[in-house]
């Protein structure tokens, strides 16, 4: 597969909940091995868009999409494509840390076991926890409940859990919004490191965060009909210094939120 080809190609994507149109005519490409930040005011549909990439919206009975998303060149929403399989290739980290009420070990082992990991599970768990910069903190208490960890540790555990199944893409939905500033910095650092081997799409409402961690930034807004549309998408440095759209400039300079 050509490394220059985009990993996702979104064309004329609209998403409806019943009659309500939450996303309108989104066209964008997601670059491989880069961090793409989705920013925009709340209610602009950035989380909804993120959930289109791993078909999490399939779980909402009223949701349906129009348009197309190509993943690795083929249609993500083709009837023959299995959403379950897709989700094991496209990992996700959520807004609030959501470890399973099991041991630290079992949290990471869950994805390995259900997906039929062929190798040594203990090794895979250690590798994932190291990648998530959590190993040193938990290596002596892998059998303890994950709920005993701090919020920041829990979120890194959730990242380790997602990494364990060796996804190609990691989707992050405001992964640091529930954490304190120090834990947030740790997560941001981790995200940068991970971008060397993974494609990352991160939703954030924190513009400094987008500026700090991402390579590319996409700015979304909600129109008067409350449906979200893509205003501008480009290199992060360009978006934050010379935005093409006045609305982008207004948003990043904090003139509205």
């Amino acid at each position: 597969m050509n490394d220059d080809a985009p990993i996702f190609e979104v064309s004329s994507l609209s998403l409806y909940y019943d009659d309500f149109r939450a996303l309108k005519d989104i066209d964008m490409e997601i670059r491989r091995y880069a961090i793409t930040a989705l920013i925009g005011p709340s209610g602009c549909g950035k989380s909804t868009l993120l959930r289109c990439f791993n078909r999490m919206n399939d779980l909402i009975p009223t949701a349906r999409i129009e348009g197309r998303i190509l993943f690795e060149g083929s249609d993500l929403y083709h009837p023959d494509v299995d959403a379950t399989e897709i989700r094991s290739r496209i990992g996700m980290v959520f807004q609030r840390p959501n470890p399973f009420p099991k041991s630290i070990y079992d949290n990471v082992a869950f994805g390995l076991k259900i997906n039929g990991y062929r190798g040594d599970i203990d090794e895979a768990i250690e590798r994932s926890l190291r990648q998530a910069a959590l190993w040193d903190e938990v290596k002596d208490r892998l059998k303890d409940s994950a709920l005993e960890l701090s919020g920041g540790q829990q979120q890194r555990l959730c990242i380790a859990r997602a990494l364990a199944v060796e996804p190609e893409v990691i989707l992050m939905d405001e992964p640091a919004s529930a954490l304190d500033p120090i834990a947030t910095l740790a997560i941001e650092e981790l995200v940068r490191e991970l971008s060397e081997s993974y494609t990352i799409v991160i939703v954030t409402h924190n513009m400094q965060q987008a500026a700090r961690v991402s390579h590319e930034t996409a700015f979304l807004m909600a129109g008067e009909d409350r449906s979200g549309y893509l205003v501008e998408h480009g290199a992060t440095s360009q978006i934050f210094t010379t935005p093409k759209s006045e609305r982008t400039e207004a948003y990043i300079t904090g003139r509205f939120s």
């Binding site: 379950t84 290739r89 959501n98 259900i114």
Partner: peptide
């Protein structure tokens, strides 16, 4: 959120429910 976490790891509905 726990169900979503399981689905996001590629679990089926049964695995999410039972495990």
């Amino acid at each position: 959120s726990l169900r979503q976490a399981a689905y996001a790891l590629g679990a089926t509905k049964l695995e999410t429910s039972v495990k």
